[in-house]
Amino acid sequence: MVQNNTWLNALTHLILILGIVFVAFPVYIAIIASTRGSFDFLQGLVPLLPGTEAIENYSRILNAGVSTSGAPPLGLMMTNSLVMALSIALGKIFISILSAFAIVYFRFPFRTLAFWMIFITLMLPVEVRIMPTFKVVADLGLLNSYAGLTIPLIASATATFLFRQFFLTVPEELMEAARIDGAGPMKFFRDILLPLSRTNIAALFVILFIYGWNQYLWPLLVTTDSSYYTVVMGIKRMADVADSEPQWNLVMAAVVLAMLPPIVVVIGMQKLFVKGLVESEK
């Protein structure tokens, strides 16, 4: 369409630049803070230009951590976060694709019930039923373990629902052709459905990886042993020091490192991620 409205175009760019400043500013401040020495905060204002202690701060936080907070070095916490994010993402994809397959390609008694049992948990985050879930995990002896960190978060409906939606769009005839070609259900699943789901799996992986990495309350509760701390919850321990200002330069270095992996994943896989996100909710 021909649009020759210079004013409107200028306004458009202005709005977007303001928007970007709004979203980027907090992170800019954090990055700046993470490059300064701890004395730079004593005059009572965050500096606005980078300092010289970036390497010092980052290597210290990665290898040693913040001594006063009882949190381990960030390197360990990042590893824990990675384990948690990967287990949750892969685990969810695995159990979800199987149950979506069952729901779409079979008819059996209690099918609708099974679907609703899964679906009802779609938006029921762990925060709401935190006490009793915590108790179940404690009773099962899963506190301070990777199993306890991940398994309770593995069942959620989002992934099942995405796969269901996707399977419904796969032409009926594909499965019929495969049946005539002599493929049983699991063979059809492996040879046809799984390869066709590749894009969806990748997109979902991005979303679920972020979900797993960003968990906060759950690791806070199920880990008391600091060797299982994850980075997002660990930062809070660092920032939460009694009776004194936190060591802002180190806390912000940790914040930057905690944001980095999921942001890299999102930007690196932007197309897939946007597609997966939008389709999972359609």
Partner: peptide, 9 residues
């Protein structure tokens, strides 16, 4: 990208 930032962060 802020989608990727944890609420706590």
């Amino acid at each position: 990208w802020p989608y990727a930032v944890a609420p706590a962060v």
